[in-house]
Amino acid sequence: MPIWESLTNSSPAEILKNIVDVLLVWFVFYKLFTIIRGTKAVQLLKGIFVILIVRILTEFLGLDTLRWMMEQVLRFGFLAIIILFQPELRRALEQLGRGRLFSRSALQEAEERDRLIEAFSKSVSYMAKRRIGALISIERETGLSDYIETGIPMNSNVSSELLINIFIPNTPLHDGAVIIQRNRIAAAACYLPLSENPFISKELGTRHRAALGISEVTDAITIVVSEETGAVSITVNGDINRNLSMEEFENQLRTVWFGPEIEQTNTSLWKWGKRKNG
Rank of each mutant, 00 (worst) to 15 (best):
M1C: 10
W4M: 09
I15Q: 06
L16F: 08
V25E: 12
R37K: 12
R37S: 12
G38A: 01
A41P: 01
L44A: 07
K46Q: 11
G47T: 04
I51V: 11
V54D: 03
V54P: 01
L61A: 12
L63D: 02
W68T: 09
E71H: 09
F76W: 14
L79H: 11
F85E: 01
P87S: 05
L89K: 05
R91V: 03
L96K: 08
L96C: 00
G97N: 10
S103K: 15
A106C: 02
D114Y: 08
D114L: 10
I117L: 15
F120Q: 08
S123V: 05
S123C: 03
V124F: 00
I136M: 04
E141N: 10
S145F: 11
G151D: 06
I152E: 12
P153D: 05
V158G: 00
P172F: 01
P172I: 01
H174D: 14
G176V: 05
A177H: 03
I180P: 00
Q181Y: 07
Y191M: 14
E196D: 11
N197M: 04
P198Q: 04
I200Y: 03
K202P: 06
L212S: 02
G213V: 06
V217R: 06
I221P: 00
G230T: 07
S233I: 11
I234M: 00
E250Q: 14
E250A: 10
G259P: 02
Q264T: 12
K276W: 13
K276H: 13
G278I: 08
